[in-house]
Amino acid sequence: MARALINVPAAAKRGEIIEIKALAQHNMETGYRRTQLGGLIPRDIIRQFVCTYNGVEVFRAEFHPAIAANPFIAFWTVAIESGTLAFTWTGDNGYSVNESKSISVG
């Protein structure tokens, strides 16, 4: 099943600043909602998102329950060389998703 949807340009010029957009599939249960019977629904969220570029971290985010369901994030990075952008989402209850995209820089 699709866990995430990532948009990275397939090719870029060296030194170009590129936008990266990432959408992950997750309910982001806040931990503040109650069931009809009044019981608290336990928190279940993605806590961290990390992007590495050829193994070096270029962007990281920490999420709290106020991040909307199916978290969306857009950020920028400088296209320095051809290679791989790797994305990792980790969260409550052992949630962990890895995705990667390649980019060719000329």
Binding site: F59, R60, A61, E62, H64, P65, I67, F75, W76
Partner: peptide, 23 residues
């Protein structure tokens, strides 16, 4: 809860700009 998110950037970001969706 007042905290929403933290974003860690660096010189390699090239542009100090982020977008997301919040509750």
């Amino acid at each position: 809860q007042p905290d929403v998110a933290s974003f860690h950037l660096g010189p390699r970001a090239g542009r100090a700009s982020i977008a997301t969706r919040i509750r």
